[in-house]
Deep mutational scan, measured.
Amino acid sequence: EFSMMFKHFDKDKSGRLNHQEFKSCLRSLGYDLPMVEEGEPDPEFEAILDTVDPNRDGHVSLQEYMAFMISRE
């Protein structure tokens, strides 16, 4: 189920989600993330990124995504 969600939000089929795609994916899974303006701080989402994209390369791989989802179950 999680990998299907990942593929759905991987719009460019790159095998990874940019942070915006990842945020959309989390919202569709029921995460209550506040709407913030582009460039505004988003501490809740930043905290999630610290876990799922610790190297802050700007992308979430399928492996990082799956590890995050399994840790939340």
Rank of each mutant, 00 (worst) to 15 (best):
S3Y: 06
M4Y: 06
M4I: 03
D10S: 07
D12N: 15
D12C: 10
D12R: 10
D12G: 10
K13A: 09
K13L: 08
G15A: 03
R16P: 11
N18H: 03
H19D: 00
H19Y: 14
E21D: 07
C25G: 00
C25R: 04
C25Y: 08
S28G: 11
S28F: 12
L29E: 04
Y31N: 05
D32F: 10
D32W: 09
D32T: 13
D32I: 13
L33V: 08
L33R: 03
L33N: 05
L33H: 05
P34M: 08
P34E: 11
P34Y: 03
P34C: 10
M35K: 14
M35H: 15
V36C: 10
V36H: 10
V36G: 11
V36T: 14
E37M: 12
E37S: 13
E38Y: 08
E38S: 12
E38R: 11
E38C: 09
E40H: 13
E40I: 12
E40S: 12
P41C: 12
P41E: 13
D42T: 05
D42G: 03
D42W: 02
D42Y: 01
E44D: 14
F45K: 00
E46G: 06
E46S: 08
E46V: 03
A47K: 14
I48T: 02
I48V: 09
I48G: 00
I48C: 04
T51H: 11
D53M: 01
D53E: 01
D53K: 04
D53I: 01
P54N: 03
N55M: 11
N55G: 12
R56Y: 01
R56N: 09
R56W: 03
D57T: 15
D57G: 11
D57F: 10
D57N: 14
G58Y: 00
G58C: 01
H59V: 11
H59D: 09
H59M: 10
H59T: 13
V60K: 01
V60T: 01
V60P: 01
S61M: 08
L62N: 05
L62Y: 15
L62V: 08
Q63A: 13
E64Y: 03
Y65C: 09
Y65A: 12
Y65T: 05
Y65V: 07
M66I: 09
M66F: 04
M66G: 03
A67Y: 06
A67N: 15
A67H: 10
F68H: 04
F68D: 02
M69L: 13
M69A: 09
I70T: 13
